[in-house]
Structure formats: structure tokens, C-alpha cells
């Protein structure tokens, strides 16, 4: 009996009731890139080819990453669903599991479960302008959405990306964003709170960038991810631009253990971030106690 889980994407010969949703799939680390002193980008490939093909996700979803002997941690997927066969995880060395992952080498095997949760409404966003706002490590899940939009660029109107980091050396994916600043199909603005001598871009909190952009409120979807303290201020700026509450999407980070709505750790108000989120629209979030 095949007792390996496949999360939401169970199909074919394996009836859903016989899979163990807690059992991770083995996955091989196929690339590691240093992004900053604290963050690395890992490319992972599921070893089982059926599982690899069946792994179907949407931007904003997450996986549970296992290093046996250390534990499991929820990590949002940074690569685009349009890229098949692998996923990328942007991981900060912030705890035991992420620390153990940072000590892994290319070729090493880790465990993966997922994808889990509700991502961004990509199909619904099509045909509209998109305003994406990230703070710090919050760029990790938004990167998936950004790259997915990039791969289907003709389906979207104006695409604006505002990204704030604390310091220049904490700007993630800078190798890509430096180039994108010169593209005319993406309006990308980076800002840092604490500039150094090399920084030539914007300075200050990400909310300052709202003065520099035009938003068509009838036609724009927003997506926000960043540290908890950021949401209130960015949402206020979007509301000032008259964007609809149910077209502003936020992604929440909460403690998660199981990823499948059972262990109870990720409760946010009356919902669970792991199955009801982590992406909520602002109307939903307004109705969630303790959310923002």
C-alpha cells in the first residue's frame, strides 16, 4: 500500500484516504544560492517522479520542510507554478530546522510535504493591474506571484512592485531586481531604511513609495506580504488610493506544525492560516480577530 501523502493533489490510483499526510516525500537539493548573509535560495526536486509531476501549486502556497532529527518548518514557495519539476524556497536561518537546512549541501536529501494552504487568486487577478508590496522576507511568497505574472505577462495590465528592506545587503533577489528596474513592463521600486554608501535607490519605509505611483482603483488587485507590523500601514495607503477591500490580498505568517488544519498552532481569529490562508483578502482579514 502506498502510504505516501500528496496533499491536495492526490490523484490516480492512490485513494486519498490511504495516504499519510504527515509523511514527507524525499526531495533532493539541486541548487543553493546565497542571497544575503541570512538567506539562501534552495532549489528542490522531489525524487519520486510521479510525485514531482503531480506537485501542482499556486503562488502563495507553502510546503512543510523536514530535516529528520531536527524537525519540520513551514516555508512559502518562491518559484512560479509555471515552472514545473522543481520548487525554490527562500529561507532565512532563523531556527533549528532552517539552520539545519542552511548547513545542507547540494545533493543532500530533505523531506517535503505539500503544497498547502490557499494562495493568491491568480486567475481572478488576470485582466487587471496588479500592485505588489513586500517588506523584508515577505518577498519570498510574492516572488512566486511575480514570476508567475512574468510568465503570463500579456494577461495582466500594469504591474507595480514595491519592495522595502532594512539595509541594501538585505535586499533579496537583487540580482534579478536590479535588472528589472530597467524593464518597461514592470514598474519596480526598491527602498531601504538604512542606506549605505553604495545605495543609490529610494530611502525610507515602503509606504513612502505610494506617493510615486498611480493606481486605477477600479481595476487593481493588491498583494501584500511582510512583517506583521507592516500590513496596517500598507493597507491604509492602498485604501487611500481607493482600492476595494476585497481586492487587497495579504499573506500571513503564523506558527504552523501540521499544515493541514489539525495541530491548531496557526489560529488567526476564527480561522487557521494553514488551510483558510495563508492568503486572505482584506475584507476577510478585517473580520479576523488578531489578524492585523
Amino acid at each position: 500500500m502506498d502510504t505516501i501523502m500528496r496533499g491536495t493533489h492526490v490523484s490516480g490510483a492512490v485513494p486519498e484516504s490511504t495516504v499519510n499526510p504527515y509523511r514527507p516525500w524525499p526531495a533532493r537539493i539541486t541548487s543553493i544560492m546565497d542571497l544575503t548573509p541570512q538567506e539562501k535560495l534552495f532549489e528542490l526536486r522531489l525524487i519520486d517522479s510521479d510525485a514531482r509531476e503531480a506537485f501542482d501549486f499556486s503562488a502563495g502556497q507553502f510546503v512543510e520542510l523536514s530535516v529528520f532529527g531536527v524537525g519540520e518548518a513551514p516555508i512559502s514557495i518562491s518559484s512560479a507554478p509555471s515552472k514545473q519539476g522543481f520548487i525554490e524556497l527562500c529561507v532565512r536561518n532563523a531556527g533549528d530546522v532552517t539552520g539545519a537546512l542552511h548547513r545542507k549541501q547540494c545533493g543532500d536529501i530533505v523531506g517535503l510535504r505539500g503544497p498547502f494552504g490557499r494562495g493568491f487568486p491568480f486567475e481572478e487577478m488576470k485582466g487587471h493591474d496588479v500592485l505588489l508590496v513586500a517588506g523584508g522576507l515577505g518577498i519570498a511568497p510574492l516572488k512566486s506571484l511575480i514570476n508567475h505574472i512574468h510568465d503570463d505577462r500579456h494577461d495582466f495590465g500594469k504591474v507595480t512592485i514595491l519592495y522595502g528592506a532594512k539595509k541594501p545587503d538585505e535586499v533579496l533577489f537583487r540580482y534579478q531586481f536590479d535588472m528589472w528596474q530597467h524593464r518597461d513592463d514592470f514598474d519596480l521600486m526598491l527602498t531601504v531604511d538604512q542606506p549605505d554608501d553604495t545605495w543609490e535607490g529610494e530611502v525610507g519605509l515602503v509606504t513612502r513609495l505610494f506617493d510615486k505611483i498611480d493606481v486605477d482603483p477600479e481595476n487593481t488587485y493588491g498583494a501584500i506580504c511582510g512583517p506583521p507590523v507592516m500590513y496596517k500601514y500598507v493597507i491604509a495607503e492602498m485604501r487611500k488610493k481607493a482600492m476595494d477591500v476585497d481586492r487587497i490580498y495579504v499573506s500571513f505568517e503564523r506558527r504552523m506544525k501540521c499544515g493541514i488544519g489539525k495541530c491548531g498552532h496557526c489560529g488567526v481569529g476564527h480561522q487557521y492560516a494553514c488551510v483558510d490562508g495563508p492568503v486572505f483578502n482584506y475584507w476577510e482579514a478585517m473580520n479576523l480577530q488578531e489578524a492585523i
Binding site: 532563523a94 503564523r254 506558527r255 498552532h265 489560529g267 481569529g269 480577530q289
Partner: peptide, 29 residues
């Protein structure tokens, strides 16, 4: 530590918020 995440943020740091959550979840969540 129930609702604390790796970067140090704790979404229910006080006993009051935790007692409340127990009831909130049971009677509404």
C-alpha cells in the same frame, strides 16, 4: 510559546489573550 514564530514574534504573548483564544476558538472558530 504556542503561537510564537521563529523570528521571535508571539501572536498571543499574554495569558489574557490565550484564555480568550481558548473560548473564542471553541465557541466561534
Amino acid at each position: 510559546e504556542f503561537a510564537a514564530v521563529a523570528h521571535g514574534q508571539n501572536f498571543r504573548d499574554t495569558r489574557a489573550s490565550r484564555v480568550k483564544y481558548r473560548y473564542y476558538h471553541k465557541q466561534w472558530g
